[in-house]
């Protein structure tokens, strides 16, 4: 099948790739751009491991076609740290032992960042519902929720 030339901005960098019209944005990020931080856990939008921001909107990149990224801004887990400095969420995830296998972690970090961007002072319940689209099978979510709340508090303090 004829491929489509796509140009987009990923984590601030201009990119271009050739997408089969059937390929998802996740396929394109992983296979064409080498950005394997976003994971495929289900391919049906149920696990959230592929969460990215598409023009500031949190999406499952497995539910977006690669060709739909034409002209868009995409942010993935690889873009969260600024230079050598981790995003507070990334640091708090390590400090709180909020990951075990780490496979869901990139998607949860992106989803948590999207949550805090729109709600800098979430309650525990708001964090839980904000992350309800991201499955974690290892942790029981306890330490994840604590890490997000702690990161939010730190980020509020820093402002």
């Amino acid at each position: 099948m004829t491929k489509t030339h796509v140009t987009a901005t990923v984590n601030g960098d201009p990119v271009e790739f050739l997408a089969d019209p059937r390929e998802t944005l996740l396929d394109c990020l992983r296979d064409h751009l080498g950005l394997t931080g976003s994971k495929e856990g289900c391919g049906t939008g149920d696990c959230g491991a592929c969460s990215v921001l598409l023009d500031d909107v949190l999406v499952c990149s497995c539910l977006v076609l690669g060709v739909e990224a034409q002209g868009a801004r995409v942010e993935t887990v690889e873009g969260m740290a600024q230079g050598g400095t981790l995003h507070p969420l990334q640091r708090k995830f390590i400090e709180h032992a909020a990951l075990q296998c780490g496979f869901c972690t990139p998607g949860i970090l992106v989803a948590a960042k999207a949550l805090l961007d729109r709600n800098p002072d979430p309650t525990e319940s708001e964090v839980r519902f904000g992350l309800a689209g991201n499955l974690c099978r290892c942790t029981g979510y306890d330490k994840i929720v604590r890490a997000v709340l702690d990161a939010a508090a730190e980020m509020r303090g820093a402002q």
Binding site: L35, K39, R91, I94, G102, L109
Partner: peptide
């Protein structure tokens, strides 16, 4: 930890 929060860890 660092590899796993930055997406670098290879699965």
């Amino acid at each position: 930890g660092l590899d796993k929060v930055t997406g670098r860890a290879r699965y």
